[in-house]
Computed example of a mutant assay.
Amino acid sequence: MGEEELKVLGAWGSPFSRRVEIALELKGVPFQYIEENVLDEKLKSPLLLKCNPVHRKVPVLLHDGKPVVESLIILEYIDETWKNNPILPDDPHQRAQARFWAHFIDHKCMPPVWTALLGSVEEREKAVEEVRECLKTLEGVLDGNRFFGGETIGLVDISANFIAYWLRAIQEVSGLDFMNEDQLPLLTKWSEEFVSCNVVKGHLPPRDKLITFMKNWLSGHGWTD
């Protein structure tokens, strides 16, 4: 495609906006990144509120001035727009499976993580087990492959960036044990290889900054940047 204006409205600590960056990097598509302050409703930019008036959140992909919102929808849009290095398989059934597992990560794996951190004692214990069960399921889906997409990074891998990077930081800060090499050797190996990929590691937040951010939040100081 010719010269295009491509912007990503994101937040440094958001795994959702980082997904978009990783996908564009994988495609070799240049873009302008615009950092948004999503921690304070009053500081959200007019551009963000105009592009995503419903959810008022990142990420937003602006392609020639036309906004696309919601990270999984953006990932599919990117794959349909730039055909090289596909992140979804050609086979319709395999495509449907990839969509299912990406949705599973967002709606089954991630919510109980926050409950495990913020819920009552009883809720936390149940949530930790729920997270572990979800990760065990993903271990089975990986089935010994290098990536969920086989030998190359695909939609599910990019969607699971939270598990590969953010979840391990959360474990360090909270002391909770969601994922370890003894119980989930395949998923642990996958996470280490995924975050080490050149197209990925340049689009992950600095670990020290993320750890500090999480410590502040869990200690009751709020979402201080």
Rank of each mutant, 00 (worst) to 15 (best):
G154F: 01
V69R: 07
R19C: 13
Q97G: 00
C197F: 00
I105E: 07
G154C: 05
Y33S: 11
H203F: 08
E130G: 01
V58S: 05
L118V: 05
P89D: 02
P86F: 03
W114H: 10
E123N: 09
L43W: 00
N161G: 01
I158S: 06
N84E: 14
F31N: 02
K7L: 07
E122L: 05
F147R: 06
A96Y: 01
L43D: 04
D91L: 03
L88Q: 06
A102K: 02
I158R: 10
F104H: 05
V29M: 02
V60F: 00
D182L: 13
L142E: 06
D208W: 00
H63R: 12
A11C: 08
H107P: 00
P15K: 10
L26T: 06
F100T: 06
V69T: 15
A11I: 01
V20G: 03
G202T: 07
Y77G: 11
W190L: 08
M1C: 11
K189S: 14
P111H: 04
Q97C: 08
Q97K: 13
N85G: 01
R99N: 03
L155R: 13
G119Q: 07
E41A: 14
Q32T: 14
Q94V: 02
F213L: 15
W101D: 01
P86H: 08
L218V: 02
P206S: 05
T81V: 05
N84G: 02
P67N: 07
E172V: 05
L184E: 10
D64F: 04
T81L: 04
E130I: 03
H221G: 13
F213P: 03
R19L: 04
D91N: 14
R168T: 13
P30S: 03
A164W: 02
E4M: 13
L167I: 05
G220D: 09
P30Q: 04
T115H: 04
R168L: 15
G220A: 10
D182S: 15
P67K: 09
G175L: 01
D91S: 10
I22S: 12
A96P: 10
E133V: 10
L210A: 09
L186W: 13
N145G: 03
R146I: 07
G150R: 09
A102R: 03
G175P: 01
P53V: 06
G10Q: 09
L62S: 05
K66T: 12
E4R: 14
G65N: 12
E4N: 14
C197R: 15
L176V: 04
R19Q: 15
L184V: 10
T224H: 07
P112H: 09
G175A: 00
K27M: 06
V195K: 07
L43I: 00
H107N: 14
H63L: 11
L49P: 04
K108T: 01
L49N: 05
C134D: 09
N85C: 10
I34R: 09
